[in-house]
């Protein structure tokens, strides 16, 4: 079974040390973020059980949390996940067209992953970038003021990175 590296285990212990003794459950959300990053971008039941054992809590306590928060993926996703905001302020600035454009360009619907496993398209609710709309989250960062040309460039950039990283 997959396990954290020594470095990640150190990080987990450092997070647990932030809380009073016995309150290590507070580390659950941060540790799930690390787990998702480490184990392929999503949380399998196995991964969640591992996190439960690390924090000495019941697996159900982990499942409860993992299913509540929208940033945790409970099934595999593509290498690059386009999370496009569709809430009011982004809609006022054309997010609907951007979503349509990505759907057509990648040939997938919202929630799907391309056959080559490279791209997943998701819609999300307001990410706090309303003044820089339309926008999406890609990995750790935001891509703002989106246009069709920018989407083309982002897709090319991802494809290029995927090749060099392999």
């Amino acid at each position: 079974m997959a396990q954290f590296s020594a470095e990640k285990l150190n990080k987990v212990n450092e997070i647990i040390a932030r809380y009073p003794t016995g309150k290590q459950k507070s580390a659950l959300i941060p540790v799930l973020h690390i787990a998702q990053e480490e184990f392929g971008g999503w949380l399998s039941a196995e991964t969640m059980d591992y996190v439960a054992s690390l924090l000495k809590i019941e697996p159900i306590e982990v499942y409860e949390v993992a299913t509540f928060y929208s940033m945790y993926n409970l099934k595999p996703v593509g290498k690059y996940v386009f999370e496009v905001c569709q809430t009011g302020p982004c809609m006022l600035n054309g997010s609907d067209e951007i979503i349509e454009y990505i759907k057509n360009k990648l040939g997938i619907k919202v929630g799907e992953t391309t056959a080559d496993g490279l791209f997943t398209l998701k819609t999300v609710e307001c990410l706090g970038a309303c003044g820089y709309a339309p926008m999406m989250q890609l990995g750790k960062h935001y891509r703002e003021h989106l246009t069709k040309e920018k989407i083309d460039a982002i897709i090319t950039e991802c494809e290029r990175n995927a090749v060099t990283n392999n």
Partner: peptide, 9 residues
């Protein structure tokens, strides 16, 4: 300490 949430308004 900084604690990150995970997507929930």
């Amino acid at each position: 300490y900084v604690q990150r949430g995970a997507g929930a308004y």
